[in-house]
Amino acid sequence: YKPCFVCQDKSSGYHYGVSACEGCKGFFRRSIQKNMIYTCHRDKNCVINKVTRNRCQYCRLQKCFEVGMSKESVRND
């Protein structure tokens, strides 16, 4: 598999339409299922990588959408 499109960590396969790691897969699923609203405490362009991905949930979710993750493919079960 290609590296995670969101944070470049080791991917566990294709999730919600893109190559993603377990961490970003779970983060995206929880964010969508719980209708989470995050805020960025900087200027909405935080670097998201394996080391920084937990620092800003707003920018991490934005990057999930930017790389093509589909909220329609998240099931509500």
Results as ranks from 00 to 15, higher is better:
Y1V: 15
Y1I: 10
Y1Q: 07
Y1W: 06
K2G: 07
K2I: 07
P3M: 07
P3Y: 15
P3E: 14
C4F: 02
C4K: 00
F5A: 12
F5D: 05
V6S: 00
V6M: 02
V6D: 01
V6E: 00
C7G: 00
C7M: 02
Q8S: 13
Q8M: 12
Q8E: 14
Q8C: 09
D9F: 02
D9S: 02
D9C: 03
D9I: 02
D9M: 04
D9K: 02
D9N: 01
D9Y: 03
K10G: 09
S11I: 05
S11K: 06
S11F: 04
S11R: 05
S11H: 03
S11W: 01
S11A: 06
S12L: 06
S12K: 06
S12Y: 04
S12R: 05
S12N: 12
S12P: 06
S12F: 06
S12W: 08
S12D: 15
G13K: 05
G13L: 04
Y14G: 06
Y14C: 08
Y14F: 08
H15Q: 10
H15P: 05
H15A: 12
Y16I: 07
Y16P: 08
Y16R: 07
Y16W: 07
G17D: 06
G17S: 06
V18A: 13
V18L: 04
S19A: 11
S19R: 08
S19L: 09
S19F: 08
A20I: 12
C21T: 00
C21F: 00
C21Q: 00
E22Y: 04
G23D: 15
G23A: 11
G23V: 07
C24A: 00
C24N: 00
C24D: 04
C24Q: 03
K25F: 14
K25V: 15
K25R: 09
K25Q: 14
G26C: 08
G26W: 01
G26S: 06
G26L: 05
G26Y: 04
G26V: 08
F27Y: 03
F27D: 02
F27Q: 00
F27V: 00
F27S: 01
F28R: 00
F28Y: 04
F28H: 05
R30V: 00
R30H: 07
R30T: 02
R30A: 00
S31W: 08
S31M: 04
Q33V: 12
Q33H: 07
K34M: 14
K34S: 14
K34Q: 15
K34F: 11
N35F: 06
N35M: 07
N35E: 15
M36N: 11
M36P: 06
M36A: 14
M36Q: 13
I37S: 08
I37L: 09
I37Q: 14
Y38R: 03
Y38Q: 02
Y38H: 04
Y38M: 04
T39W: 08
T39E: 10
C40Y: 03
C40L: 03
C40E: 01
C40D: 01
H41G: 10
H41P: 09
H41S: 08
H41Q: 12
R42G: 14
R42L: 14
R42V: 15
K44W: 06
K44D: 09
K44S: 13
N45W: 05
N45L: 11
N45G: 09
N45D: 07
V47F: 08
V47P: 12
V47G: 08
V47I: 08
V47N: 08
V47H: 09
V47M: 13
V47E: 14
V47Q: 12
I48M: 12
I48S: 04
N49S: 08
N49I: 06
K50C: 06
K50P: 13
V51W: 15
V51Y: 11
V51Q: 13
V51D: 15
T52L: 12
T52E: 14
R53T: 11
R53I: 14
R53P: 14
R53V: 15
R55A: 15
R55I: 15
C56N: 00
C56L: 00
C56Q: 01
C56E: 02
Q57G: 15
Q57N: 10
Q57L: 14
Q57T: 06
Q57C: 13
Q57S: 14
Y58V: 02
Y58P: 00
Y58F: 11
Y58E: 06
C59Y: 01
C59L: 01
C59F: 01
C59W: 01
C59A: 03
R60D: 00
R60A: 08
R60K: 10
R60N: 01
R60L: 15
L61C: 02
L61F: 07
L61I: 06
Q62H: 14
Q62T: 11
Q62F: 12
Q62I: 11
K63N: 03
K63M: 09
K63P: 01
C64W: 01
C64K: 01
C64P: 02
F65G: 04
F65T: 10
E66H: 07
E66G: 10
E66S: 09
V67I: 07
V67F: 09
V67D: 01
M69I: 07
M69V: 03
M69N: 02
S70C: 09
S70V: 12
K71W: 07
K71M: 08
K71C: 07
K71T: 13
K71Y: 06
K71V: 07
K71F: 06
E72M: 08
E72N: 12
E72D: 14
E72W: 05
E72Q: 07
E72R: 07
S73G: 11
S73L: 13
S73H: 09
V74P: 09
V74L: 10
R75L: 14
R75M: 15
N76T: 07
